[in-house]
Design a protein around this nucleic acid. Structure first.
Length: 880
RNA sequence: GGAGGCAUAGCUCAGUUGGUUAGAGCGCUGCGUUCACAUCGCAGAGGUCUUGGGUUCGAAUCCCUAUGCCUCCACCA
């Protein structure tokens, strides 16, 4: 085994190791749920990345978290399925492909629907390939055999089924309503796809003359160009200024149309002039008012964001150019009063940033109220739990004010709406397969609805469509509801909410037990990573430079659920250094396992062995608990501390004496503990750092083919050594004290020291067990243990720890001034502590109400501090 | 206009049911290359836990308030 260890280089090279293992895992079928067929099911469906491009840091975080949970549960023996997939991402992908063919001077209409879709499928294949490769490089242990695509056959069938059932139930309807139109993408978008940006704008004041010539009403608007479509002016019925005018007619300037003054509660008398021009065809509020008052809809802006024929002489003009012209014309008519600078929210398209045009258009909608109710109930009752909990408020708030969901998109890439219309009688036929004749009039002139469905309509079915629904499948039976959904907080509305109400509606059961929400990966300055800023970091470049394990560990540490995290090079280096530490600790262990044959000797556990075993037990417990609570960052920190501080800095050093100079039994014991503890460290770390842990585990004595399927350590099955751990703590304190003295007194490291330890009998026993450790770690050639009453050697530095007086004779080396300063500092610290403790213990309330345990602890501390002060003060006296 | 988050060491952040001598990484100071690792070791400096109240025997932790920064939601023309 020595040769093998020597073959490992002193610096860990992730690329070499990572490249080989993923292929082995995948080919061996380790990712399959079939591995723990009898275990309890554990399932995560992967939030499907868009096939628009490549994975970014957010995906890396998302996948790492899911992989950690998946690997953890798999090792715990669960029947584990992490189901991967990708999303066709309607608008986004179509936009990319349109831009791509535009390079060749082509428009999608030049190709036609079918040819264009061929191009999109090519694009999809290419990026799908790239994305899944990236997932593999990250180490994601998802079951590729179960991979799905939102537009594959099964998912498409699920989409049709859902659409038809909702339609038949009256929860999907078609109607002409005001929708959000993106003039650039040339499609509707849903309300949540509209982003509200504050823009600097103007509020213009215009006067509309009364038809009877008795004056005018002044209105205020931010969009003068829409006045061409005005059909009324509304005032608040309580507003005395306008009470007499209600019911009168106005003459719409420029157009000459007669429009009524109407009363509606919606109008806020305190804003603007208290009179609002009403344009039902181009404003959502006005649309509602128009319905209430049976007003016509005059469409003056078209889908190209240009003025329509209805706009008369302005027809064909861009909406913003028209705005200027209208203002100018009203001014020339003497109807322009004033202009105010205001900042107001403008709706923009989340994809392309264009200003949204509210338009009236026949579209398909999902009736939300009946679906939202049970979805809210599921979270309110705790049936579905958000982690962190605060996100449930955000979720509920959204559903409370939900409006119907516009699901039709004027795109080609997506699920075609399963509806046909009869050209002759207008009959609407909603069914899976194309009808041949109209069931009403028998006509054969039928055409399918040209629109496709919102991408989120299909991803909303993801937790059950991917498991086989609407077919009855074993997977669906076993894994639905899934265990936990891991996703970014930015898509709670888009995706999480929709999965919940669609899951409840179609499966009758929630889609997952818990929703683990994570934040965004920000750049080093705390800004969102974005293409426009050019501050995005490619996970692949980081993996090439630092390795996937380091990237994963960096993304997980120092982060708590739901919070954003900054991507910093230094943190990456820290993670890289940690992998290197693990690598070298393992090299050390392997080098010393040369003559080791497991289970072939007798064990004689020492204090140090029992201490590290107790620490390991604690770590197993903490890591397991934290993983169960989704505190991944804490779990990672537990492992970092145990591995580096406890195992490397202390235990390995403590074991060296027995490895180099021990008897056969001592050596065998040290070897066994080293190998076992390291083996379990690797297991516990495996979910976080799959590659390096597999590599090293394979070199160590082990059972089984892969660490991936090894059994997760169980704390309750491990022996407890609480007393020994506490005893070892004393030894470590003594060592630290001596080291401190040596360092402060500038004792050269090469110079061996002599140490005198004075203690009560019980502690003497403990110190004796730690003699060797003190010798080695404090570089002492002689350690003497004596009674409390023993005389202190002259010219020595001293310290006091938990009842033990520590003396380090420093003949000729001691600087009296320095030593007394050092002692005074120690005394001051102890006094400060003593004051705090005594204060508590003198407080009657504390004694009366604090738990006995806490009081005992404080009493112990008080005694300890008093002793320490006494001992150190005595030394100080002698020095003087 | 609503809602949420954050504020702890020079920097970036942990600190999970209130009781720790308030921690880590990086940075900083001193010492160190005897063979696991300089992507390292040892020792150390550095914090009135943003302000002001409150609850409590006890608050970084719970409540209120102020300030600053960030984010989300929202049909005031």
């Amino acid at each position: 085994m020595k040769n093998e260890a020597n073959r490992l280089s002193t610096v860990y090279n992730p690329a070499e190791v990572e490249n080989k293992w993923y292929a082995v895992w995948e080919e061996s079928g380790y990712f399959s749920e079939k591995n723990n067929k009898d275990g309890q099911p554990f399932c995560i469906v992967m939030p499907p990345p868009n096939v628009t491009g490549q994975l970014h840091m957010g995906h890396a975080l998302d996948s790492t978290m899911q992989d950690i949970l998946t690997r953890f549960r798999r090792m715990q023996g669960y029947r584990t399925l992490w189901l991967p997939g990708t999303d066709h991402a309607g608008i986004a992908t179509q936009a990319k492909v349109e831009a791509n063919i535009a390079k060749d001077g082509l428009h999608k209409d030049d190709l036609g629907r079918e040819k264009f879709l061929e191009k999109v499928w090519e694009w999809k294949d290419q990026y799908h390939e790239r994305i899944t490769k990236q997932q593999r490089l990250l180490g994601s242990s998802c079951d590729w055999a179960q991979e799905r695509f939102t537009l594959d056959e099964g998912c498409s069938e699920a989409v049709q089924e859902v659409f038809i059932r909702l339609y038949e139930k009256g929860l999907i309807y078609r109607g002409s309503y005001i929708i959000n139109w993106c003039p650039k993408c040339q499609t509707t978008i849903s309300d949540i796809e509209v982003e509200h940006e504050d823009h600097a704008g103007h509020l213009w004041y215009f006067q509309y003359p009364l038809q009877d010539g008795s004056g005018f009403i002044e209105i205020a608007t931010t969009r003068p160009e829409t006045m061409l479509g005005d059909v009324a002016v509304a005032v608040n019925p309580e507003d005395e200024r306008y009470r007499d005018m209600i019911g009168k007619m106005l003459v719409l300037p420029i157009v000459g149309r007669e429009i009524p003054v109407i009363a509606d509660d919606y109008v806020d008398p305190s804003f603007g002039t208290g009179a609002v021009k009403i344009t039902p065809a181009h404003d959502p509020n006005d649309f509602e008012i128009g319905l209430r008052h049976h007003l016509p809809q005059v469409v003056v802006i078209g889908k190209d964001a240009k003025m329509t024929a209805e706009a008369g002489k302005y027809a064909g003009m861009d909406r913003y150019v028209c705005r200027e012209k209208i203002v100018a014309e009203l001014d020339s008519l003497g109807l322009f009063h004033k202009k105010e600078e205001i900042s107001h929210a403008v709706g923009t398209c989340y994809r392309c940033g264009s200003v949204i045009e509210p338009l009236v258009s026949p579209q398909w909608f999902v009736k939300m109220k009946p679906l939202a109710e049970p979805a809210m109930e599921a979270v309110k009752t705790g049936d579905i739990r958000f982690v962190p909990e605060r996100f449930s408020k955000i979720y509920l708030g959204w559903l409370e004010n939900i409006r119907d969901w516009c699901i039709s998109r004027q795109l080609w890439w997506g699920h075609r709406i399963p509806v046909w219309y009869c050209d002759d009688c207008g009959e609407l036929i909603c069914q899976k397969d194309a009808p041949t004749v109209c069931p009403k009039c028998g006509s054969k002139q039928l055409h399918q609805d040209p629109d496709v469905l919102d991408t989120w309509f299909s991803s909303g079915l993801w937790p059950f469509s991917t498991l086989g629904w609407p077919q009855k499948t074993e997977l669906l039976d076993a894994f639905y509801p899934t265990s936990v959904l891991v996703t970014g907080r930015d898509i709670i509305f888009f995706w999480v909410a929709r999965m919940i109400f669609l899951g409840l509606e179609f499966m009758g059961k929630k889609p997952f037990d818990e929703v683990l929400i994570h934040g965004l990966v920000l750049d080093a300055q705390g800004r969102k990573m974005s293409k426009s800023l050019g501050n995005g970091i490619d996970p692949l470049e980081i993996i090439a430079q630092y390795g996937a394990d380091s990237l994963r560990f960096m993304l997980i540490t120092g982060n708590t659920p739901g919070n954003d995290l900054r991507f910093q090079e230094e943190r990456l280096e820290a993670a890289r250094n940690f992998t290197n530490k693990i690598w070298n600790a393992s090299r050390f262990v392997l080098m010393n396992l040369e003559d080791y044959v497991p289970n072939q000797g007798s064990l004689q556990l020492t204090l140090a062995d029992k201490w590290i075993l107790q620490e390991l037990k604690n770590t197993v417990q903490n890591v397991t608990d934290n993983l169960q609570k989704y505190e991944l960052g804490e779990a990672a920190r537990n492992l970092y501390d145990f591995t580096w501080d406890k195992f490397c800095d202390w235990y390995i050093e403590l074991a060296k004496a027995r490895l180099y100079k021990g008897t056969a039994e001592e050596k065998y014991t040290a070897q066994t503990v080293l190998a076992n503890v390291l083996q379990q460290i690797l297991q516990l770390l495996h979910p976080f750092m799959p590659f390096i842990t597999e590599e090293l585990w394979q070199h160590l004595p082990h059972e089984g083919e892969t660490i991936m399927l090894s059994h997760w350590p169980q704390a309750q099955k491990m022996s407890s050594y609480a007393q020994e751990a506490s005893d070892m703590g004393l030894i470590m304190d003594v060592i630290r004290s001596v080291r401190n003295i040596r360092s402060e007194m500038n004792v050269p490291p090469g110079k061996k020291a002599q140490i005198l330890l004075c203690a009560e009998e019980a502690q003497q026993e403990v110190l004796k067990q730690g003699l060797l450790y003190i010798q080695i770690l404090a570089q002492a050639d002689k350690v003497q243990i004596a009674n409390k009453e023993s005389e202190a050697p002259s010219q020595s530095a001293s310290a006091h720890q938990k009842g033990v007086d520590i003396f380090v004779p420093l003949k000729g080396l001691i600087d009296l001034e320095k030593e007394s300063a050092r002692l005074q500092k120690e005394i001051a610290a102890a006094e400060k502590e003593l004051q705090k403790v005594s204060g508590k213990l003198q407080n009657a309330g504390f004694l009366a109400k604090a738990p006995a345990q806490v009081i005992e602890k404080e009493q112990g501390k008080q005694k300890e501090m008093q002793e320490k002060i006494a001992a150190l003060s005595a030394r100080l006296q002698i020095l003087r």
